[in-house]
Design a protein around this nucleic acid. Structure first.
Lengths: 108, 108
DNA sequence: ATAATCTACAACTAAATGGTTGTAGATTCT
DNA sequence: AGAATCTACAACCATTTAGTTGTAGATTAT
């Protein structure tokens, strides 16, 4: 598993904004159109539309057309992906600790 | 647990850069000074120093002075924190699924 | 003592980010 | 048919970001 790549950049960058995290949380709990989401924030429709686009490029959401509306649907796999990446970081740390403990064992 | 706040912004933003993720991975596997880290990248010392500062403000690393060196040490709790935040997102999604399933049960 | 190394920080630049307004095409409502 | 709604996208602006070079203070090595 690679910890580099622009895909990962986009994923964490999308999560690094309060409004986008809130939009994502909204989309997690129910289906909302872009304009329904936009009404919840003190920003223009276009601003919220851009945030959704950032989430979409990060793979965190997709859009489904329903008539004139565009429903924002979460992609739970992208969250799993982010978690897996963090797990790999943690493992590096744990493995180092284990190596350290192995050395202590030898010293006995 | 809050999913908002500038602290969280800083955390995910720090992770949203390939070089910083790599620096973090290096710091996870062993102790390195800032200049030792800087030598591994095709950037100036100052650039790497800034990346470390971003990681530090995000709480992902701390610095420990050893003589003229500054050792970069990871703070595993910050990674745990990020994982916990992602877990909360996932839970929103799962809870929604459960509500949905409960409705289906009722219909029987 | 002097030179080399490590760090901190300021000043600068180009590009990206997050917001705005405005225009225009689809779709739905009356 | 005409009005209202939803979306897409361009153009613009202010701020932040990620890089640079340069200067200066502390510490270590010769």
């Amino acid at each position: 598993m690679e910890l580099d790549g622009e895909e990962v950049d986009r994923l964490f960058h999308a999560l690094a904004d309060r409004t986008r995290r809130d939009i994502l949380a909204q989309a997690m709990t129910g289906d909302h159109s872009v304009s329904a989401l936009a009404r919840r924030y003190p920003f223009s429709f276009a601003a919220v539309q851009k945030h959704v686009a950032v989430l979409e490029k990060a793979g965190l959401v997709t859009k489904q057309k329903h008539g004139r509306e565009q429903r924002v649907v979460t992609n739970i796999q992208a969250i799993e992906r982010a978690r897996t990446l963090l797990d790999h970081f943690e493992r590096l740390w744990v493995e180092r600790l284990e190596r350290f403990e192995a050395v202590l064992e030898e010293e006995d």
